[in-house]
Amino acid sequence: MPFPAYHVLFYMLLLCVGQADAAELRVAVASNFFLPMQQIVSAYEQQSENTIKLSIGSSGKHYAQLQNGAPFDMFFSADSNKVYLLEQQELIIPGTRFTYAIGRLALVSMEPENDAGAELGVLTQRAGRIAIANPMLAPYGRAAQQTLQQAGLWEQLQPRLVVGENASQALQFVASRNARFGLVAASYLSMPELSFAYVWLIPDSMHEPIIQQAVILRDSPVARDFARFVSGESGRAVITSYGYHLP
């Protein structure tokens, strides 16, 4: 049976109407910020008709994709360098770059290490692999390197380091008990399914600040609205609850 053309037209019109009512925003988000972002998004969607679609990934991958025309409206990077580079290439909406969070690093273990000394000292007192994110790729990896360098342990611990491609993989290595220690993003400490027996928050003075910035790539009222929401009161409350500092 032939399908009347006006039916098709009718449905296409319906689709257009639907889009006008509630827009959809595609957001690329760094893996360390995925948990707070999910919470921010569900809070946002409760007070808005719009829907947010999240793509989790390492910021380096998102950056490469964005250079090649990936269809994201916003990008929440794990650092400030990649959004700066995108800005230089005029791939972002001018004036939309903003700092949404300042990351914190934590030393964690699945074993209770408290009896082995204090702070970074446990790393030399106890054997076993130490997982970090890749210092060349991930800001949390660079911060981990700076921390160990400042403590004068970098050279000494080199043979025991295992490198995850990003912050969340370093966490996997510890959570699956393949690495004894991990220097990971403090935001992961809030994951209910993870129970570390040892946690030490690295003082901010041990590394350069992990400045996490976001940008709008394709301008729309929704993108502006969501950016305001993230840096607004409810967004900030979620962000601090995950252990980040605010700008």
Binding site: G60, A131, M136, V162, V163, A179
Partner: peptide, 19 residues
């Protein structure tokens, strides 16, 4: 775990360079 000489194979090295 990307350890040079032990587990850092070519495909991982390429990935790291791209990233």
């Amino acid at each position: 775990g990307n350890i040079p000489g032990e587990t850092r194979v070519a495909s991982i090295a390429i990935y790291e360079r791209v990233e």
